[in-house]
Structures are given as C-alpha cells and as structure tokens.
Simulated assay, not measured.
Amino acid sequence: MNTQAAKWANNNRSQGRELDLKEYSGPDWMSTAYKNNHYVVMIEEGGRMNNGVTAIKAMVQRHDDKPIPHH
C-alpha cells in the first residue's frame, strides 16, 4: 500500500455497517456480516460445536486477504 493510501485508510476507519446478505457473496453458514474500511466480520448465530452445544461462530477477514496484525 502506498503512503497516501495508508494515510487515508488510517484516518478513515468507520464503525462498520451491516451487510445485506442478498448482495454480498460469502460462506453459506453466514447469518450476519459487518464491514468497515479494513475488515469483514462474518457471524453464524446457530453454529454447532462437536459436543452438540449451540455457539456463535465468527470469522474476521481483511479486505486484502493478508494476515491480521498482532492476531
């Protein structure tokens, strides 16, 4: 990322917005998604664990598919 783009990205972080799943192509298990200038958070509210307990599953992905720093 060039310095101007990096400066813009750091100064323009948004709180995020909920995505319309009809318009956003994502995993089949995704029930809710949020997006800001850097990340997409995909959520499944009815995820099943190996022991049968229901859990909330979340996946965070950077827009450029690079590793998330300090994660």
Results as ranks from 00 to 15, higher is better:
Gln4His: 11
Ala5Ser: 14
Lys7His: 12
Lys7Leu: 13
Lys7Ser: 13
Trp8Gly: 05
Ala9Arg: 11
Asn11Leu: 10
Asn11Thr: 09
Asn11Ala: 13
Asn11Ile: 02
Asn12Val: 08
Asn12Lys: 08
Arg13Gln: 13
Ser14Gly: 11
Ser14Ile: 13
Gln15Asp: 13
Gln15Gly: 15
Gln15Ile: 12
Gly16Met: 01
Gly16Arg: 01
Arg17Leu: 05
Glu18Pro: 05
Leu19Cys: 03
Asp20Phe: 06
Asp20Glu: 11
Asp20Ile: 04
Lys22Ala: 13
Glu23Tyr: 09
Glu23Met: 09
Glu23Trp: 06
Glu23Val: 07
Tyr24Pro: 02
Ser25Glu: 11
Gly26Met: 07
Gly26Cys: 15
Gly26Ser: 10
Pro27Lys: 09
Pro27Leu: 05
Asp28Thr: 08
Asp28Cys: 00
Trp29Ser: 01
Met30Ser: 10
Thr32Ala: 09
Ala33Arg: 02
Tyr34Ser: 06
Lys35Asp: 10
Asn36Ala: 01
Val40Ile: 07
Val40Asn: 00
Val40Cys: 00
Val41Arg: 07
Glu44Pro: 02
Glu44Thr: 04
Gly47Asp: 07
Gly47Ile: 01
Arg48Trp: 00
Met49Lys: 12
Asn51Cys: 11
Asn51Ser: 04
Ala55Trp: 09
Ile56Asp: 00
Lys57Asp: 03
Lys57Tyr: 11
Val60Ser: 01
Arg62Cys: 04
Arg62Asn: 07
His63Arg: 11
Asp65Thr: 13
Asp65Pro: 04
Ile68Trp: 03
Pro69Glu: 02
His71Pro: 05
His71Asp: 10
